[in-house]
Nucleic acid binder design. Structure first.
Length: 278
DNA sequence: CCCCAGGTAGGCT
DNA sequence: AGCCTACATGGG
């Protein structure tokens, strides 16, 4: 990725490998706002940036330049990943063309855990609404926006209070997870293997295999995971004309894509959800 | 009234 | 281990 840093800006020159719409609307992140056609505000933990397109480049404007260089995964060569995927799996051509500008974000661990627990059996509009409510109610006011609440800030929130945000039966999950995470050093989890991390995440209330896979992919940058949700289920059943359960689909797709699973999943998810490309 | 949304927990074989 | 179902909430 070719980019320069000037004061409070990251300027990205190869636009085809960085399309804000693809990156933000492919379902990996919920905390962003579309300001207008080519301008977004993106919130991650206690930080934020503004992303907008110009003729020759994309600009990320932020007070936390280094954080967002990492966040947007600017040091990874997506051109190479995409051509590998297409060469090894020709049917990926169309999904990759459709989501050509996707990048897998490196998101905050705590925020990602909470966000994807909220996402279960829920729709994206409502997930976003709930997560912004969490920010406004329990996070720190930070000028124009509220930061995502820390574990400490959620420690004394009751199940009833979560319910008032529209969390429904997931209120109990959040309440319990916050208790479970109280004595865990999240940063240290980065040292675990995919399997070890998976087992830990599955021990959290409200985290099943799909949510665990999302957390590993979006917060731990594990690539050998393949989150299977309703959309991927549709993709799979259309391609292979098979009705089967999600665990078998997951194993089958992991075998198919190996260490590129995480990337493949995002292209397939995005194109399926946006346009029913089949 | 139904079905669906980035599914999971708990209970049953 | 695997299969079944209830589950909060809001939108179509």
């Amino acid at each position: 990725m070719i980019y320069t840093i000037e004061n409070n800006r990251i300027v990205i020159y190869n636009k085809k490998d960085f399309v804000p719409k693809h990156i933000l609307e492919c379902g990996q992140i919920f905390s962003y706002k579309k300001i207008d056609k080519n301008c977004y505000e993106v919130y991650s933990a206690d930080k934020m940036c503004k992303v907008f397109e110009q003729e020759q480049c994309v600009v990320v404007e932020t007070l936390n330049v280094e954080y967002f260089v990492n966040f947007f995964d600017l040091k990874t060569n997506y051109e190479e990943i995409k051509s590998k995927l297409i060469n090894n799996h020709p049917f990926m051509q169309k999904p990759i063309e459709f989501g050509a500008g996707i990048r897998i974000l490196k998101q905050d661990i705590f925020e990602t855990i909470i966000s994807f627990i909220v996402s279960a059996n829920n729709n994206i509009k409502r997930i976003q609404k709930i997560l912004f409510s969490l920010r406004e109610k329990y996070g720190c006011k930070n000028g124009t926006y509220s930061s995502f609440p820390t574990l400490k800030q959620l420690e004394n929130v009751t199940i009833e209070e979560f319910k008032q945000l529209g969390l429904g039966y997931r209120s109990k999950y959040l309440y319990n997870v916050i208790k479970q995470l109280k004595n865990v050093d999240l940063e240290k989890l980065k040292n675990l293997s995919t399997l070890e991390l998976n087992n830990f995440l599955l021990s959290l209330m409200g985290v099943g295999q799909k949510v665990a896979d999302c957390i590993m992919l979006f917060a731990f940058y594990k690539q050998d995971v393949f989150p299977v949700d309703t959309w991927i289920e549709k993709v799979y059943c259309c391609y292979f004309e098979m009705q089967t359960n999600r665990n078998i689909i997951r194993k089958s797709l992991l075998k198919e894509f190996g260490n590129l699973s995480g990337y493949a999943q995002q292209y397939l998810f995005y194109s399926q959800r946006e346009q029913n490309f089949l």
